[in-house]
Every structure is written in C-alpha cells, then in structure tokens.
Design a binder for these strands. Structure first.
Length: 236
DNA sequence: CCAGACGTTGTT
DNA sequence: GTCTGG
DNA sequence: CCAGACGTTGTT
DNA sequence: GTCTGG
C-alpha cells in the first residue's frame, strides 16, 4: 500500500516529463523526507480550465459535495481516503465521479513500507534505481466553500501487489509508465472500463526500475522529517 | 420527474 | 481500544 | 502509514 | 455535485 512518501527533490518534478504548463506550488518548497497522509503532496492534473497543472494537494480525498467546512473536517478525520482501490473506485460513491473525470498523477521519489510484526517492524524505502521521480495513478477532488475557500485533495490508487512487492505488502500503488500519463489524465476518457484499461500496462510488475533499501526507524515518527530518515540505523 | 442520500483502507 | 494529528 | 493522546465544569 | 429510488 502507500501511506508514506518522500519528495526529496521537488525540482525533479520536471515539466517536460509530466507535461504540465502551470505550477501552483509554494515559492519555498522544501524537500520532504517523511511525507504523511493528510499533508500536501504534489499532483499533476488537468484542472477545470483544461490546463495541465502541478499543484500541491491534501493527501486524503475529500468529496466536493460536502455542505460545510465542518463536514469537510469531519470527513477528513473520519475516513482514510488516501488510497483508493482500483477494483472499487468505479462504483464507490466517494470515488466514482473522480474515476471518470478527475484522475491525476501523484508524483514522489520514494515510498515507505514496513516489514515485520508490530514492535519489530523494519522500514524500507522503495525508490527508482536512478533516484528520479515517478508517478502513481491517483484521483483528485476540490471542495469549494461559500467564502472562496478551497480544499484540493487526492488519493493514490492501489491494487493487488506484483509478485516482487509481496515481501513489502499485499497491496501496491499503481505506478504508471510515462506512456500511460496522457490516457490516465485525459478528462475526455470517461468510460469506466476504458479507464481501468489504462492501468493495465504494468511496467513495475517487476523490480527492473525500482529498488528497496532499509532505512532508519526515525521514519516511524511522523513528526520527524529530515535527511537522516533515509539511512540505516547503526547496528545495535 | 423530484427527493433524498451520499464516505474509506487496512489491520487483526 | 480507538481516535487524532502529522 | 505510525505515534501519541486519551480529562471536566463553569465562566467570560 | 451526482447517483439512487420511487
């Protein structure tokens, strides 16, 4: 599954790779070594004006139809929508609209997985062998309050793991090959089954492009976000 | 047609 | 145990 | 995802 | 908003 990530080099999210023309990101965008659900994560999507944009979004999908800020806060804290199941998104009430019309790429350069039972869990970082950024299939949403307030949010698609990933988890994020970006992002592609087809190309069904390394248990603490999260702890 | 409901993943 | 917060 | 908190009555 | 149910 995907519940922790890194964006160690925001500048590595390049326009020419992901094809966006507009950026809605902070001028001071510091690297993240320990990025958690319900924090801001970079997303590439086609917005209402048809522009392909890079934007930070709240990593926990919140439906746009909620009537008040209170309902938004309540939904966000009550439900874990930072992942969405590929098998369910087309029909699940929260996701079905976004599945047809509001798909996105969630762009990071690493994701964490924990191996082992509670108490003896070892954190691993999964990243590209070339350390470049990569894109996971996602869904996005925007909630607009009456006073102009906006909450942009997103979920990462997960499905059954490829065999090489099973040591980490039985579910894995849908990592997309660049050739699939356009189809996945295309708002004109609204047929649910056709959408699912665009995820069928599974270049990461093996570990050719990805590797894993053991990292520090410091990563366990979601409040700790520093480069030394990404190196192994000294032997005991 | 209108009224009314309307939410998730993962873990053990 | 369960919820909140990061 | 994991870590850490987890409480009350009354008053302004 | 968008879907379901009557």
């Amino acid at each position: 599954m995907c519940g922790r990530a890194t964006v160690t080099n925001p500048e590595g999210i390049e326009e020419k790779v992901y094809g966006f023309s507009t950026r809605f990101v902070p001028t001071e965008w510091r690297p993240r070594y320990n990025l958690n659900p319900r924090e801001d994560i970079p997303v590439v999507h086609v917005d209402d004006s048809g522009e392909r944009s890079l934007r930070l979004m709240h990593w926990n999908f919140v439906p746009g139809h909620l009537a008040s800020r209170e309902q938004v806060m309540s939904f966000d804290s009550q439900y874990s929508t930072f992942n969405a199941k590929i098998e369910r998104a087309a029909i699940a009430p929260t996701f079905r609209s976004a599945w047809r019309k509001q798909r996105c790429l969630v762009v990071v350069d690493g994701i964490f997985e924990w191996v082992g039972a509670k108490g003896v869990k070892t954190p691993h970082l999964v990243r590209r062998r070339d350390r470049a950024t990569f894109a996971m299939a996602g869904l996005w949403s925007v909630w607009r309050g009456h006073d102009g307030e906006e909450l942009w949010s997103c979920a990462i698609m997960v499905g059954p793991s490829a065999e090489w990933y099973l040591p980490f988890h039985h579910r894995m994020a849908a990592i997309l090959p660049p050739a699939s970006y356009d189809a996945w992002l295309d708002p004109a592609l609204t047929d649910a089954a056709a959408v699912e087809e665009t995820l069928k190309a599974a270049p990461y069904s093996h570990s050719e492009h990805l590797e894993s390394v053991i990292v520090s248990k410091r990563i366990n603490n979601p409040r700790y976000d520093a480069p030394d999260c990404l190196v192994p702890d000294a032997a005991a």
